[in-house]
Computed example of a mutant assay.
Amino acid sequence: MKLYTRTGDTGETGLYGGARVRKDSLRVDAYGSVDEANAALGVAATLGETARLQGLQADLFVVGGDLATPLERSVPRITPEDTERLEHEIDTLEAGLPALQNFILPGGAPLAAALHLARTLVRRAERAVVTLCDAEPGQVNPETLRYLNRLSDLLFALARAANQSAGQADIPWKRTTRD
Rank of each mutant, 00 (worst) to 15 (best):
E89D: 05
D91G: 05
T144M: 03
Q54M: 06
K23R: 03
V63L: 14
A135K: 10
A44S: 07
E136A: 06
P76N: 12
P80Y: 01
T13L: 07
T7P: 05
I104K: 04
R119L: 01
A162L: 01
A30W: 06
P80Q: 01
G42I: 07
S165W: 06
A159D: 07
D59M: 06
I90E: 06
S165P: 00
T92N: 07
A169G: 05
A162Y: 01
T79H: 10
V63R: 10
L145A: 01
R22I: 06
N141T: 10
L93F: 00
L60C: 13
M1V: 12
L151A: 02
Q57E: 10
T69C: 02
A44W: 09
D82F: 05
P142Q: 13
E49W: 10
R73P: 02
N149F: 13
E72Y: 11
L105I: 09
G55E: 09
K2V: 08
G167N: 06
D179V: 13
G167M: 12
L145R: 14
S33L: 14
A99I: 11
A19C: 12
G8K: 03
V28K: 00
Y147H: 13
T7Y: 12
A95F: 06
I90R: 05
Q57T: 09
A162N: 06
R150L: 05
K2C: 04
R85S: 03
R27D: 10
L26Y: 02
R175W: 09
R6A: 13
L154M: 05
A68H: 09
G55F: 03
L115F: 01
L115G: 04
W173G: 08
Q54K: 08
L158E: 15
A40C: 11
G11C: 04
A58C: 11
N149L: 14
A58G: 09
M1K: 04
D134I: 10
V21Q: 02
G48H: 03
I78M: 01
G108K: 01
R160L: 08
P76G: 08
T83G: 05
G42L: 06
A161D: 15
G48E: 07
L145D: 07
F103Q: 04
G32L: 15
R175H: 09
L145S: 06
L115R: 02
T131W: 11
L41I: 11
A169C: 06
Y147D: 12
R6S: 12
L3M: 12
D29E: 15
R146L: 11
R22T: 02
V43I: 14
A39E: 02
R73S: 14
G42N: 03
E89Y: 12
A128K: 15
A45C: 04
A37F: 05
Q164M: 10
V129M: 01
P110T: 00
I90T: 02
D170Q: 00
L93Y: 00
F156H: 02
T5I: 06
R119E: 05
R123A: 09
G11H: 09
G18C: 13
L148P: 02
R85E: 01
A30H: 07
P106W: 00
R178A: 14
P98T: 02
L71A: 14
T177M: 11
A45K: 04
N38I: 06
